[in-house]
Protein backbone atom coordinates (compact mmCIF):
# COMPACT_ATOMS: atom_id res chain seq x y z
CA UNK A 1 0.00 0.00 0.00
CA UNK A 2 2.77 2.43 1.06
CA UNK A 3 4.86 1.31 -1.86
CA UNK A 4 2.03 1.92 -4.29
CA UNK A 5 1.74 5.44 -2.98
CA UNK A 6 5.47 6.02 -3.40
CA UNK A 7 5.97 6.30 0.33
CA UNK A 8 8.62 4.39 2.19
CA UNK A 9 10.14 4.61 5.65
CA UNK A 10 13.25 6.69 5.79
CA UNK A 11 16.51 4.96 6.71
CA UNK A 12 19.55 6.95 7.64
CA UNK A 13 22.79 5.96 9.25
CA UNK A 14 24.81 8.18 11.62
CA UNK A 15 26.74 10.63 9.51
CA UNK A 16 30.37 9.74 9.23
CA UNK A 17 31.41 13.22 10.38
CA UNK A 18 29.74 12.81 13.76
CA UNK A 19 31.91 11.61 16.62
CA UNK A 20 31.44 8.04 17.70
CA UNK A 21 29.41 7.73 20.93
CA UNK A 22 31.23 5.83 23.67
CA UNK A 23 29.93 2.36 24.34
CA UNK A 24 27.66 2.15 27.43
CA UNK A 25 27.75 -1.23 29.06
CA UNK A 26 24.98 -2.79 31.10
CA UNK A 27 26.93 -2.17 34.31
CA UNK A 28 27.24 1.54 33.50
CA UNK A 29 23.53 1.63 32.87
CA UNK A 30 22.81 0.05 36.28
CA UNK A 31 25.21 2.41 38.09
CA UNK A 32 23.85 5.60 36.55
CA UNK A 33 20.17 4.79 36.57
CA UNK A 34 19.85 2.61 39.68
CA UNK A 35 22.77 2.65 42.11
CA UNK A 36 23.46 6.39 42.19
CA UNK A 37 19.78 7.39 42.72
CA UNK A 38 19.46 4.64 45.31
CA UNK A 39 22.56 5.90 47.12
CA UNK A 40 21.23 9.46 47.15
CA UNK A 41 17.90 8.20 48.49
CA UNK A 42 19.58 6.24 51.29
CA UNK A 43 21.76 9.24 52.20
CA UNK A 44 18.77 11.58 52.45
CA UNK A 45 16.83 8.99 54.46
CA UNK A 46 19.70 8.63 56.93
CA UNK A 47 20.08 12.40 57.31
CA UNK A 48 16.38 12.65 58.17
CA UNK A 49 15.88 9.59 60.35
CA UNK A 50 19.08 9.32 62.40
CA UNK A 51 18.65 12.61 64.34
CA UNK A 52 14.94 11.87 64.86
CA UNK A 53 15.80 8.40 66.12
CA UNK A 54 18.38 9.83 68.50
CA UNK A 55 15.80 12.28 69.87
CA UNK A 56 13.27 9.51 70.34
CA UNK A 57 15.73 7.61 72.55
CA UNK A 58 15.38 10.30 75.21
CA UNK A 59 17.51 11.05 78.22
CA UNK A 60 19.40 8.35 80.03
CA UNK A 61 20.87 8.81 83.48
CA UNK A 62 24.43 8.60 82.17
CA UNK A 63 24.06 11.60 79.88
CA UNK A 64 24.71 15.11 81.18
CA UNK A 65 21.54 17.05 81.84
CA UNK A 66 23.00 20.55 81.70
CA UNK A 67 21.01 23.65 82.64
CA UNK A 68 17.71 22.23 81.46
CA UNK A 69 14.75 22.35 83.86
CA UNK A 70 11.69 20.20 83.39
CA UNK A 71 8.49 20.37 85.41
CA UNK A 72 5.83 17.72 85.41
CA UNK A 73 2.56 18.32 87.16
CA UNK A 74 3.73 21.60 88.60
CA UNK A 75 3.65 25.23 87.60
CA UNK A 76 6.72 26.27 85.66
CA UNK A 77 7.11 29.44 87.70
CA UNK A 78 7.67 27.39 90.83
CA UNK A 79 11.43 27.39 90.25
CA UNK A 80 11.48 31.17 90.40
CA UNK A 81 8.82 31.19 93.10
CA UNK A 82 11.13 29.06 95.24
CA UNK A 83 13.43 32.05 95.59
CA UNK A 84 10.54 34.07 97.00
CA UNK A 85 9.74 31.65 99.83
CA UNK A 86 10.52 33.43 103.06
CA UNK A 87 12.81 31.72 105.59
CA UNK A 88 10.03 31.92 108.17
CA UNK A 89 7.59 30.06 105.94
CA UNK A 90 10.25 27.52 105.08
CA UNK A 91 11.25 26.84 108.67
CA UNK A 92 7.59 26.56 109.66
CA UNK A 93 6.93 23.94 107.02
CA UNK A 94 10.13 22.00 107.70
CA UNK A 95 8.78 20.68 110.96
CA UNK A 96 5.57 19.45 109.36
CA UNK A 97 6.65 18.14 105.98
CA UNK A 98 8.01 14.67 105.42
CA UNK A 99 10.05 12.93 102.77
CA UNK A 100 13.42 11.37 102.20
CA UNK A 101 16.63 11.87 100.24
CA UNK A 102 18.80 9.61 98.17
CA UNK A 103 21.69 9.45 95.74
CA UNK A 104 22.67 7.02 93.04
Amino acid sequence: MLGSLGLAPAFADTPAAWPQQPHVSGWDYIVVLLLIPLGVFVLVWLVITVPAHRRSQGQATGEPWGDRREWFGGPRQSVDAADEVTPEALSASEHETGGASGRW
Binding site: W65, R68, R69, E70, G73, G74, V79, L90, T97, S101
Partner: peptide, 29 residues
Protein backbone atom coordinates in the same frame (compact mmCIF):
# COMPACT_ATOMS: atom_id res chain seq x y z
CA UNK B 1 -2.93 14.23 96.29
CA UNK B 2 -1.00 16.54 93.97
CA UNK B 3 2.24 15.25 92.46
CA UNK B 4 4.95 17.46 91.00
CA UNK B 5 8.22 16.31 89.49
CA UNK B 6 11.15 18.65 88.95
CA UNK B 7 14.14 17.45 86.93
CA UNK B 8 17.09 19.78 86.82
CA UNK B 9 19.98 21.21 88.76
CA UNK B 10 19.40 22.08 92.39
CA UNK B 11 20.33 25.57 93.43
CA UNK B 12 22.43 25.09 96.54
CA UNK B 13 21.88 22.22 98.91
CA UNK B 14 19.46 19.72 97.26
CA UNK B 15 17.23 19.08 100.28
CA UNK B 16 16.80 22.77 101.04
CA UNK B 17 16.12 23.53 97.40
CA UNK B 18 13.52 20.75 97.20
CA UNK B 19 11.78 22.09 100.32
CA UNK B 20 11.72 25.58 98.83
CA UNK B 21 10.22 24.19 95.62
CA UNK B 22 7.63 22.31 97.64
CA UNK B 23 6.75 25.37 99.70
CA UNK B 24 6.23 27.34 96.48
CA UNK B 25 3.63 24.92 95.11
CA UNK B 26 -0.03 25.91 95.00
CA UNK B 27 -1.15 23.55 97.79
CA UNK B 28 2.02 22.33 99.51
CA UNK B 29 0.22 20.58 102.36
Amino acid sequence: YEFSVYVGAAEGEPNAFARRLHAALVAPH
